[in-house]
Design a protein around this nucleic acid. Structure first.
Lengths: 229, 229
DNA sequence: TGAATAGTGTCTTTAAGACAATATAGT
DNA sequence: ACTATATTGTCTTAAAGACACTATTCA
């Protein structure tokens, strides 16, 4: 962190946070985009984001939580740092660093006015490098879905195992053996049954409801057998 | 990236990159620390790092490469963004963001003067939040070692399978079945044998030498079977 | 009672672990 | 030939996939 050619870090560099808020609707991974209300790209759909407030935020994650609350009205969903994106060209205002986060929520009942949920795989051109940021977030979520409990955060609680099963399948894009799926969830031991039971649509046996154990709200659980050696 | 209370991002925020350069020596994961030659923490051992140069760097990764070359004389080792660390207190000069990277190299023959390699698990107090950054890097490397080809970058090329086997074991801290290990490496298909053969120490059958296929210099290969469902 | 989905039991298949057998260089 | 490690073959064990069977609700 010492430096051989500069004695000051003040180069008028812009620092922001951007939030990729994801949910699963209609079997698709969708991202929340908001209409920008100022330059640059005034009026365009873009990720919720904002400047880091050095007089207020204790870190970029604080800024992310603040943005999430102010712009999407969300209190504390699952939030994880994604990566930072930087360079002279990504923001017309100048050399910028954006610390990107992704957050997961259960599909909202109804879209609030001004909130646009778009499928991550069919996005229009977006301002800044938001397309790239969203692609990175989607890749991360799909990747982690292969070996972790991450998708639980996309499911409205309480939920049934068949519901969760469907979500995993949508994320991974392939059928998952239901028996193995149950075995794995059992083994992960992150869910606890809630007393009641619930029926789906038709006339048939209702499924047991589960909720995420509190200790796993912000922690992921990884499934075993990595290199398997 | 619009903002409801600020119209400028200029809050005299400091932006740096820090590099966690890791290697495996004496069976331990070790990190390169350099003696700082200026304030703050002049004279203390710390991660190589430096300001982002907005007039020169095309992104933080450029800055990281530049620091790596200037401070450790390294051209292009395996380099991956780790995470960003930020806040008002981590740097006495003010509110700062450090985009941290980690790099992997084969153990250097001899330590260059001024270069200090220390085991990541037995570090003294370090300036800034470098202790935390190193811990995060070590955790990431060990984690990825469970299910990827990452450790290949800690091995001097060309190398034998038994050598690589030893490295994986050191990283994972447990014995790995040699037969399964070979099967997995075969299956990953990232290595290619080089014509020659090599002997270890004693009088015995020499092992085949391998090198990393060029297309995997910056790309990792993941081992199959995530959720396994 | 019949339809439909939830949940369980269990057999089959696949991949990992153990271990024995063979290969090969140097002495 | 003998030693020591490399490499392969193959049997055992564990976990995933397939599939049939039971459970439970509503119509």
């Amino acid at each position: 962190m010492n430096d051989s050619t500069n004695s000051s870090g003040d180069h008028r560099l812009i620092c922001t946070v951007d939030i990729v808020l994801l949910t699963l609707r209609d079997g698709q991974l969708q991202v929340l985009l908001l209409k920008r209300d100022r330059e640059p790209f005034d009026g365009a759909l873009a990720l919720p984001g904002g400047y880091v407030h050095v007089d207020e935020d204790q870190g970029c994650e604080d800024a992310a939580q603040r943005v999430l609350l102010q712009k999407a009205g969300l209190q504390s969903p699952y939030l994880e740092q994604l990566a930072s994106f930087s360079g002279p060209a990504r923001d017309p205002r100048g050399w910028s660093v954006s610390v990107a986060y992704f957050a997961l929520v259960a599909a909202p009942e109804a879209s609030q006015p001004g909130q646009h949920w778009l499928p991550v795989d069919r996005l229009p051109q977006l301002p800044f490098d938001h397309g790239r940021i969203i692609a990175a977030a989607a890749e991360r979520v799909r990747n982690k879905s292969q070996y972790s409990s991450l998708p639980v955060h996309l499911c409205p609680e309480p939920f049934t195992l068949p519901q969760l099963h469907t979500i995993y399948q949508a994320l991974l894009g392939e059928a998952i053996n239901p028996v193995s799926f149950r075995r794995k969830m059992e083994e992960l031991a992150i869910l606890e049954p809630v007393p009641g039971a619930k029926r789906a649509q038709g006339p048939h046996r209702p499924a047991q409801l589960y909720r995420l154990k509190d200790e796993f709200r912000q922690t992921l659980r990884l499934v075993g057998r990595g290199l398997n050696v």
